[in-house]
Amino acid sequence: MQTARSRALRGLRGAAVSAALVVCCTSPGPPAAASKPGAGSVRAAAGTAGSPVAASAAAPAQARGRQATCDAPEASLRPSGKSGPAVKRIRKRGMLIAGVDQNSYRWGYRDPATGEFAGFDIDLVRAVAKEVLGDPDKVLYRPVRTNQRIPALLGGKVDLIARTMTINCDRIGHVAFSTVYFVAGQQVLAPKGSPVKGFDDTLRGRTVCTARGSTGATELAEETHDADVRLVADQLDCLVLLQLGRVDAVITDNALAAGQAAQDPTVELVGEPFTREPYGLAMRPGDEDLVRRVNKVLKAYRKGGADSPWSKAYDRWLKDDLRGVTGPPKAKYRDRPRTTPHTGTAER
């Protein structure tokens, strides 16, 4: 797939043509299904249908009516310190198994120098391990790919997923989320001083980069603002292309974009987030006691204003590049678990 794309590119330098080709060659699904009439080409067909991740990883505003609707997806079970079967299982094992990302700088990544995991998500996992096992180091980190998050969880490979995972109506049928610990949104990343000012008409005629199957790709399929779209395997590949001058801007969620900006001081987030993506830790629906326990951890994590663990983690990992965040999101609760969890998987 990579080869086909680069060959196509070598031959056809014209930005519009090549972007159209890239999309055609790389998107597995039927093209242009979601393309806006009048956008004039297949450029916007950023591979949503047929892409394994898109169905649920891409979860933009329900307001558009494309997603399943549901009752208060962000409301989670009330916190409790009571130990049930899930907590006992983890204690018996003496190790919390967490599914994490290893490539998202500042969120979940492996420090190249030490080989250790670090980031905002990792700090959360450590806090959970401290609560459940009394030791933040008793964690087995298992890298899971975006499209493997739900299968890894339901298949019993991990106790929880801490991996910039958006709570949405598609997913709450399969997994149980903690309360929201961060609210991100899709945003544009561009070089400082770039004419690109946000997800708007300043993108006209520019080339924008986003990860294949991501929310960004879905959004661009809806509305390109007349930009050419370049799809890559991983969001960080966009920063490489940006530095090499092959794309003009990157669209990704601002949490990840902050990680990119942290690696390159000459780029910055521009404009406002144009989607709302609440992050939660995901667990198995049956592990009710663990969900409540994690919510207890999160409750304590938020507490204390500027001195709260949440604020300290924010200051350490995100503050420099992700401004405009005043504090942790408020928790929403429900008393009873959701009924009829689906048995199938939304993600492969």
Partner: peptide, 16 residues
């Protein structure tokens, strides 16, 4: 410098 971007560059180089 400990940046994951290095890995992305290496993958890009490898792809080339």
């Amino acid at each position: 410098q400990g940046l994951p971007l290095g890995g992305a560059y290496l993958r890009y180089a490898h792809d080339r």
